[in-house]
Simulated assay, not measured.
Amino acid sequence: MRHSRKLTLAAVLLATASTATAGNTAAYGLQPAPGPRAAAIDPHLGPEVDVGAGETGIATVECPSGEVPTGGGGFNPALLSGHPFAITNSFPEGNVWVLTALNTSSSVQKLAAFVLCSSVAHTVVESAPGNLNPGTGGSATVTCPDGLVTSGGGVHSSGTEVEVSALHATPNTWSVRVANNSGAVQAASAVVICADIGTSGRTGESKVIAPHSTGVVLATCPQGQVPTGGGIFTDNPGAFISGLNSSGPSWFSGVNNLTDSPVTAAAQVICTAG
């Protein structure tokens, strides 16, 4: 896997950043999954690690030899719905998927990284890191090289308190939205995974997550297609992503709503022929 940096967008204050919604990907979602070839997708869940209350944990999972990530994430595999984490990093490093997440609960929680793998060559491009002042948020977008399409993506931050509130794709871009809840300047960047396979995006039904609660939203690939990666839209930067994983044709995204207001969320899945 090639890993390169592409100087695209630095992070900007959320007050002036454009916010993505599920409706922004309607055209992308209606497209079929054409392309020169399909990619056999191989899902893997890494070992569980214990994360103490208020602490940040790190979990990793490795693709088999000869395979590389097409997308990934992680979650608390001990819970059926809702995950009391705030993801701070989720990105590929070689054939390994790296996940870090802050445990926002008052008890020890399980954390595991998740990755989708393929033997088809993929290219990873990371945006230039954008600085975030304490108590501010920002967004960044990164674009695939010409001729390649988005199969998945993630986020790479410098701190343990840079929480992620949105991850989403277009046919050849990947965007992230983050908030710096630490007391120091932090940096964050968008990471896109690109390939010459045929992909298309689907956005699932919106779901309202009650204040100070967790929930899970999903998006499902059409019959005969499988996920290569996925993300999530939220309408409030105070609602953090707590889980990212797939099962069968569906992509699941966890939401941790730490605000005093209801939050609307929708998952996005990137699909290819199975």
Rank of each mutant, 00 (worst) to 15 (best):
S206Y: 02
G198Q: 06
V149E: 09
D196Y: 02
A219P: 08
Q225E: 15
D235Q: 01
Q225C: 07
G137I: 09
G254D: 07
W174P: 09
V255G: 04
W251Q: 01
V149D: 01
I193A: 02
V176N: 02
G198F: 09
T170A: 14
A140E: 10
L167C: 09
R177S: 13
V192C: 06
L167A: 09
V255C: 07
S158D: 00
V178L: 11
V226A: 07
G153A: 07
A188G: 14
A140G: 08
C194T: 06
S165N: 13
V149H: 08
V164C: 11
P237S: 07
P262F: 01
H212Y: 13
S157L: 08
Q225V: 04
I232R: 03
E161M: 06
S182R: 03
P145M: 12
T203G: 07
F252C: 02
S189L: 10
F252V: 09
V217F: 03
T214M: 02
I241N: 12
S247R: 13
D196F: 05
N256C: 02
T259I: 11
V142Y: 06
G229P: 12
G230D: 00
V178N: 04
N236T: 12
L258S: 11
A195K: 12
G215K: 06
N256F: 05
T136A: 01
A169W: 03
G254K: 00
W174A: 01
T143V: 13
D196G: 06
V255Y: 03
S250L: 04
D260M: 13
G243K: 13
A166V: 14
S213E: 11
G231E: 00
V164R: 04
S158R: 01
P211R: 05
G238K: 15
T150M: 08
P262E: 01
G183Y: 08
N256G: 00
P262C: 07
V162S: 11
V217Q: 00
S151M: 13
D235R: 04
S182G: 11
V155N: 12
W174R: 03
A239N: 09
Q186V: 09
A239L: 10
N172S: 15
S139G: 14
G238N: 14
G229Q: 10
A179G: 02
T173Q: 06
A140N: 10
P249R: 03
D260V: 13
P171I: 11
T220R: 00
G248Q: 11
L244F: 14
D146G: 10
S206V: 11
S250P: 09
I197E: 12
F240A: 11
C221F: 04
P171S: 14
A169C: 07
A219M: 09
T203N: 09
I241T: 14
S182C: 09
W251T: 05
S200Y: 15
A184T: 15
S250K: 06
G138P: 07
L218A: 15
S182P: 05
N245W: 15
L244M: 15
A219E: 07
I209F: 00
P222S: 12
L148M: 15
N236C: 10
V255Q: 00
T234E: 11
I209G: 01
G137M: 10
G152M: 03
S250D: 01
S253E: 04
N257I: 05
A184I: 13
S250I: 08
A190R: 04
D146T: 14
P237K: 03
T136F: 10
G137F: 05
T234W: 11
N257K: 03
T173V: 02
L167S: 03
K207P: 01
T136E: 11
